[in-house]
Design a protein around this nucleic acid. Structure first.
Length: 571
DNA sequence: GCCGTTTTCGGCCCGACTGTTTTCAGTCG
């Protein structure tokens, strides 16, 4: 097993131990070890062979032995023993909001429920209400959680899809018979979640290329295999379709399979009005059977009297009118981002020290990095007390003096408390250069109360930006109920920035509201919410969403160089 | 199960909410 698989197994062991009711700290120890393992750089083999595994924080004798067993034999005795006792479906029940180890255990032992399917049936039969500790409300909440999960089933976070697609595309491009190849579909449009992946390639030898494709790394199953279309399922479960066409057809097919469906419909309608027929094979004038020659998508749009529309904009949000009038935005790109804002260190719940954060950000070419650890109320994340804030500031001053090649900004992700006040008094808030105010508690306030709470935080003169404005976790939890239009209006009034949290779980601000924010002159800041070095690369997904949100570099606060960024904050 | 400048045992993150209870257990962040 590799590091990732071992970490996953340790998590499963912890889950099962919890269901068995073992010492909760023992369970936590396994979870900590899993987290440490996942975030440790370097090869596991080296760690094991050099005997340095035990030096990692949270890995002692017992867990080290488990890790070594898994690494050497691909098995875990502990895991197998627990699994023999606890059915997999019982473990899956833990993924439902509101079902923890105790409830799962009660459902399994007292009602004999061994899967989410059985659980849903039992709820509909009204069988949960009689169970001690359960009641009508619990049953309703569980049904809701099951419904939510069903609705999300078969969808994937964009980073999962992106990584799978990149592997396939790299493999495809190694073959000599491929002329052009691209990712299409919702992934190319940079949607926040992805159902399946569409790949397109042009070739004069489609059979040979297809044969090569179905041997790509990471494929779990070949679902269909033809000369022009093949479908595979990747190990992650995501389905991928590859279509191979001629190189003349390529731009038309790419356009067609990129969508969105509504964008395509609008384009086809426009083409028809102009006496053309547009489909995935070409653009045909009148009754002609020969397509107009278009070398690329730009040429297709041009032939239809339009500026080139970037894939991210193809959602029928006014892009066709703008392309007609020459008013399309010049979308922000990843290389425009000058500073990394909202990064956590080991001082709260990150895995990098302040110095390592600075080094990693500098390595990525950023001019500045704003450390934004949690505030004191976020006890679950080891939030900083005022004393620890002062210590961190001292450390930052010292690092900045040592000329690290990057400016480290003193930032804070301060909790917005239930009433909209902040977790630090003004005197302390004034010592930070960047204050991101976020909600981490009391998600179920009414829309009115939640909005009022956020507006109060926006109005605080020490707050520079509002973090992950809805608190949603894609595919697992809806955001809290808040009037985002009111938030955007308030941000405009107070010259505040709204975070576009780039973490693939969040991508919050939603791009639909990002469009509204841009039109009202509200800047966004594309923040990775990084807890490790790898997380820093989440900026790319945030940029995707910003592009969907019609953002130009001038609409993105951290696309500004350091001095301008600091001026923006002061405003 | 892990850890240790209060060190080999005893603490480990903790407060708030929800729904179940009639004083609290379970879940969450």
């Amino acid at each position: 097993m590799d590091k990732k698989q071992i970490a996953k197994t340790l998590e499963a062991i912890a889950d099962m131990m919890e269901i068995r009711g073992e010492n909760p700290f023992k369970c936590i120890a396994h979870r900590n070890a899993a987290r440490t393992l996942e975030t440790t750089e370097g090869s596991l083999e080296e760690l094991i062979e050099s005997g340095r595994l035990r030096e990692l924080k949270g890995i002692g004798e017992s867990i080290a032995n488990k890790i070594i067993e898994m690494y050497r034999t691909d098995r875990s005795t502990t895991y197998e023993e627990l699994r023999a006792e606890i059915p997999e479906g019982v473990l899956e029940m833990l993924t439902l909001t509101g079902v923890g180890p105790k409830k799962a255990k009660a459902l399994w032992e007292q009602l004999g429920i061994k899967s989410i399917g059985e659980l849903e049936y039992a709820c509909n039969e009204n069988r949960l209400v009689t169970l001690p500790g359960f009641g009508q409300k619990t049953q309703e909440k569980i049904l809701q959680a099951i419904a939510f999960q069903k609705k999300q089933a078969g969808r994937f976070l964009c980073n999962v899809a992106w990584e799978a697609a990149t592997v396939l595309l790299d493999h495809l491009r190694k073959h000599k018979e491929v002329i052009r190849s691209e990712i299409g579909g919702s992934l190319r449009r940079r949607r926040e979640t992805i159902g399946d992946i569409d790949l397109l390639a042009s070739s004069d030898a489609p059979e040979a290329l297809m044969k090569h494709f179905i041997k790509s790394p990471g494929i779990a199953e070949v679902l269909a295999h033809g000369a022009t279309k093949s479908s595979v399922r990747m190990e992650q479960g995501i389905q991928v379709d590859l279509r191979i066409i001629t190189d003349e057809e390529f731009p038309f097919a790419l356009n067609y399979f990129t969508g969105s469906k509504d964008h395509n419909t609008a384009l086809r309608g426009r083409a028809k009005k102009m006496g053309f027929k547009l489909n995935e094979y070409g653009l045909f004038h009148g009754a002609s059977e020969r397509s107009e020659k278009c070398r690329d998508e730009t040429a297709i749009y041009k032939r239809l009297g339009l500026d080139y529309i970037e894939p991210e904009l193809r959602e029928v949000m006014g892009e066709i009118e703008a392309a007609e009038n020459g008013t399309l935005p010049h979308l922000v790109e990843e290389k425009d981002i000058k500073g990394l804002v909202h990064v956590h260190s080991t001082d709260s719940d990150g895995v990098l020290s302040v110095e390592q954060v600075a080094k990693a950000a500098q390595k990525r070419g950023y001019e500045y990095v704003a450390l934004c650890d949690h505030s004191k109320s976020a006890a679950y994340a080891h939030g900083l007390s005022p004393e620890r804030v002062r210590a961190q500031h001292k450390a930052i001053d010292k690092l900045n003096k040592s000329a690290p090649g990057i400016r480290i900004l003193k930032g804070m992700e301060v909790d917005i408390l239930g009433d909209g006040s902040l977790d630090f008094e003004d005197k302390i808030l004034a010592t930070f250069e960047v204050v991101v105010a976020s909600i981490h508690s009391r998600f179920n306030l009414s829309r009115e109360e939640q909005t009022k709470r956020l507006l109060r935080a926006v109005a605080n003169p020490h707050v520079h930006m509002i973090g992950h404005p809805t608190g949603r976790l894609l595919l697992s939890r809806d955001g809290y109920d808040v009037d985002l239009d009111a938030l955007i209006d308030a941000a405009a009034r107070h010259h505040k920035i709204i975070e576009l949290n780039a973490h693939p779980f969040r991508l919050d601000l939603d791009w639909r509201y990002c469009i509204r924010a841009q039109r009202k002159g509200v800047l966004v800041s594309i923040n990775p919410d990084a807890h490790s070095e790898a997380d820093m690369d989440y900026v790319r997904y945030g940029v995707g969403i910003a592009r969907k949100g019609w953002c130009e570099p001038s609409g993105v606060a951290n696309a500004a160089p350091l001095d301008k960024f600091l001026r923006l904050l002061k405003k």
